[in-house]
Each structure stands twice: as C-alpha cells, then as structure tokens.
C-alpha cells in the first residue's frame, strides 16, 4: 500500500503519465505540422512524399502561390466566408439560446433536436443542400417562386456572383446548433439573482441584456467565436459537394484551393504553402481561445 503511494508520488509516475500524452502529440500533431511546413519550403513531387530530403526552394513557393491569378479571389472569398459564417452563426445561435432560456414546455427537448443537423456528416449536408439549391427543380427556388419572390430560377450554385453565398448559407445552417448549445451553457451559468436584483433596481429587459448578459457572456462568446473560426477554416466538404470552388473559381476558398493543388494537380509544395498559412491563422485564433478559456475558468 505504502509502496503504491510512494510510486504514485514519484517523478517516475509523473513521467509515465506525461510520456504517452506528449508522444501522441509529437507523433500525430507535431510531426504532420512540421512535415507540412517543411514541404512548403521544398520542391515536392507527388512521388517523393516518402522522404524528407528534397530540393530546397525557400520562399519561392510562397511567391509562386501569391503570383497565381486566383490568389486574390481566394483570399477575399476566405475572409468573406469566415466572417459572414461567424456573424450569422453567432447571432442566430445566440438568439436561439436566449429564446430557449425562456423555459417553455418542451424547450429542452426542442433544443436537443436542434443538434440533429450538427451531428450529420458535412458531405451528407452538402448533398441535401445540393438538392435544395438546384436551379431548375430545387426546393428553395420552388418555395421562392410560390411566394412570388423571384421570377425566374436563381442558380444558387452555378451563378458566380451567388455561389459563395450559397456555401455560406449552408455553413451557417450547419453551425447554428453548435453555437446555440455552447451559448446556452454560458447563459445557464449566470445566476438568476443577478437578474432579479437588476429588475428590482428597475432595469428593463434591454438594459439587463446589455449590462448583465453581454459582459458575463464575454468569455463564452470569445471561445465560441474562436472555435467558429477554426471550424469554418476546416469546412471543406460543403465546397466539394456544392460548387467544387466554381464556377470559374468564384467560390473557391483557401482550404479547398490547398486540396486542389495538392491532390488534383499534384503541386504539393503550393498546397502546403496555403496549408501552412492557414495553420498560422488557426494557431493565432487557438491562442485567443486558450486565453478566453482561462478567463472563463477564473470567472
């Protein structure tokens, strides 16, 4: 017994706990990350992915990527995609979270059912939205036409000025449940007596939201936004299912572009450049997320 306790307090035991965790991270996270960064500085051929020793190109690949005619469009599309997705996911998710906070009969059940959309694989979601968005026999156009909102069909996925927005709409739909659940948890953590005290002081509903809900929710909001950015930058399947980045690259975003270069045209170095740049952004956001979490725990 005493031996066990001594063992548990020993440095060796700590080491036993630390080594597998660190080993796992090194093998499955750090190695691929570093491998990708290294590839972005090398001249890589699909046929020598098995080695690490390849001709060095330095920043040449980075220059190449930005010199491509589609680089500007992809960059702007990615910014638009991330910002718009987050703005709508968050505002609609927050509104729903507040709504379900009202605690009407069946509120908990209904809130749970919202998750049904979120647990579906994105590729399935993509296939469903493909039918909804179909120009000639799609459900959405049928509904809009029946309501006399549009005259002719809207080509949601094949009109270059709309295609990106269609992907954003599908992505917002996909992200709302997750945002709502996380924000609901945050809302549930605010004690009722704070609101009651404020009500006694004569604060109206809007005043209570502004001076109690928002400030107390700030850490949660920060965390949800950070996670939203990370998830949105990972969103690949919807693009693949809906537009393949088209028409004419009009709805291409960085993650899909990176995949196209790596696995469609085998320009792996250039694909790795985009992946590396995206990783930098995600790492920065993750840092903010970790800080937000720390605040939350303190609070």
């Amino acid at each position: 017994m005493r031996f066990l306790k001594a063992w548990r307090d020993s440095d060796a035991f700590n080491l036993v706990l630390v080594v597998p965790a660190v080993g796992y991270l090194l093998a499955f996270s750090a190695f691929p990350l570093i491998y990708n960064v290294v590839m972005s500085f090398q001249q890589v051929d699909m046929f020598d992915v098995g080695t690490l020793i390849r001709p060095l190109r330095g920043f040449g690949n980075y220059v190449d990527v930005f010199a491509r005619s589609e680089a500007g469009t992809v960059l702007w599309n990615t910014v638009l995609f991330v910002v718009m997705s987050i703005v709508f996911q968050l505002s609609i998710g927050f509104a729903l979270a507040l709504f379900f906070q009202l605690d009407f009969p069946g509120a908990k059940w209904l809130r749970g059912l919202f998750l049904a959309g979120w647990v579906m694989p994105a590729l399935v979601v993509g296939a469903i939205w493909r039918w909804i968005f179909a120009g000639d026999f799609g459900v959405l156009n049928y509904a809009l036409r029946s309501l006399h909102l549009i005259g002719g069909p809207v080509f949601w996925t094949s009109d270059p000025s709309i295609a990106l927005w269609s992907i954003i709409i599908a992505n917002v739909w996909l992200g709302i449940p997750f945002n709502m659940i996380l924000l609901s948890v945050g809302l549930a953590g605010i004690p009722d007596d704070v609101y009651e005290a404020a009500a006694l002081d004569g604060a109206g509903m809007i005043e209570r939201f502004r001076s109690i809900t928002l400030p107390l929710m700030a850490p949660t909001l920060g965390a949800v936004i950070s996670l939203g950015v990370i998830f949105t930058l990972q969103q690949f399947d919807l693009v693949a299912a809906l537009t393949q980045g088209g028409p004419a690259g009009a709805s291409n975003i960085a993650q899909y572009w990176s995949w196209q270069m790596s696995f469609e045209t085998y320009e792996i170095s250039d694909g790795a450049v985009v992946a590396t740049l995206m990783m930098t952004v995600v790492a920065a956001v993750a840092l903010i997320y970790v800080r937000a979490i720390r605040h939350e725990q303190r609070a």
Partner: peptide, 20 residues
Amino acid sequence: SNDVLVWGQVDLMASFRAQN
C-alpha cells in the same frame, strides 16, 4: 441550364431521365 456548370455526367443524365 446554367447548372451544367456544376453538373457531372451522372447529374445531367438524371435530368434527362426525368424528362427535364
């Protein structure tokens, strides 16, 4: 149809079968 920009061959034949 404008949607031929996103239709693979299987998709356009589905429209043909549906007589669209």
